[in-house]
């Protein structure tokens, strides 16, 4: 048994297990922290920066989805600074590629859209980019629109860690990063894809989707955590 760790989150004393992340400890205690690249059941990535928290005694910010708890840690999940930065993160993601909600399968159940509403993003302070990636419609059941991808890598991690296939990965770097199938193959021609659909279920936006189906229908159940729960036999 790992030993219990005591810490405070937003002034509340909580007990967590050794090795657990701050996010997990917060969730278990009903404390909400916004997340985007985090996905229950797979490894943490720490890229979107939505889940940042302050830790007393450090000027740095920490991604709670990946930072382990420590004895006596004093965590702050909400502050004027954190709210300001989270808003920037969402605005920049919305501006980075064209997100046009009215023509998106995820409209209404998109996690990015929800965060924008929640954080009060009512306009963008920076110009939008109009990337022009070709939409991949080659798979018979699924489609991929890189223009909507926020590079959270949830699909990559699910495909690798849950399905065990690793069809997906990133190509290029920086703003040109792109999620690709195999060695940049069209989805329909991917040799390794098992057409399991976990990636589209994991996508927080409408970048990977089931053709012709609104995301709200696909996402009735949190597929990945459901699978992981079943696998661990709980």
């Amino acid at each position: 048994m790992s030993k219990p760790i005591e810490l405070t989150i937003d002034g509340r004393k909580v007990v967590a297990e050794e090795g657990e992340t701050i996010l997990k400890a917060a969730k278990k205690n009903g404390i909400y922290v916004p997340t985007l690249c985090y996905l229950e059941g797979v490894s943490s990535f720490g890229g979107c920066r939505l889940c940042m928290v302050e830790i007393k005694g450090s000027p740095r910010l920490f991604a709670s989805c990946i930072t382990p708890v420590a004895e006596g840690m004093e965590v702050l999940t909400d502050s004027e600074r954190l709210r300001r930065y989270r808003k920037w993160a969402v605005e920049l993601l919305l501006a980075e590629r064209p997100h046009v909600c009215s023509v998106c399968v995820a409209n209404g159940s998109c996690e990015l859209q929800q965060l924008a509403t929640e954080l009060g993003v009512d306009h963008l302070r920076v110009d939008r980019e109009w990337t022009d990636y070709e939409v991949d419609l080659t798979h018979e059941r699924f489609a991929y629109d890189p223009n909507r991808c926020i590079l959270c890598t949830r699909c990559i991690r699910v495909c690798d860690e849950v399905e065990g296939v690793h069809t997906l990965d990133l190509m290029l770097r920086g703003k040109n990063s792109k999620v690709v199938f195999d060695l940049d193959e069209n989805w329909g021609f991917s040799q390794s894809c098992t057409s399991c659909g976990k990636c589209s279920a994991a996508c927080p936006v409408g970048a990977l989707y089931v053709k012709g189906k609104p995301l709200s229908e696909v996402k009735k159940k949190d597929l990945v955590s459901f699978i992981m729960e079943r696998r661990s036999g709980k």
Binding site: G47, L92, A95, E96, V126, D127, L170, K175
Partner: peptide, 20 residues
């Protein structure tokens, strides 16, 4: 901007906007 690995939002998307 060119050298950003693209993992995190502030560096990947933020620096590009700053450059623009």
């Amino acid at each position: 901007v060119d050298e950003s690995c693209g993992k995190c939002t502030p560096c990947r998307a933020g620096l590009h906007k700053l450059f623009k």
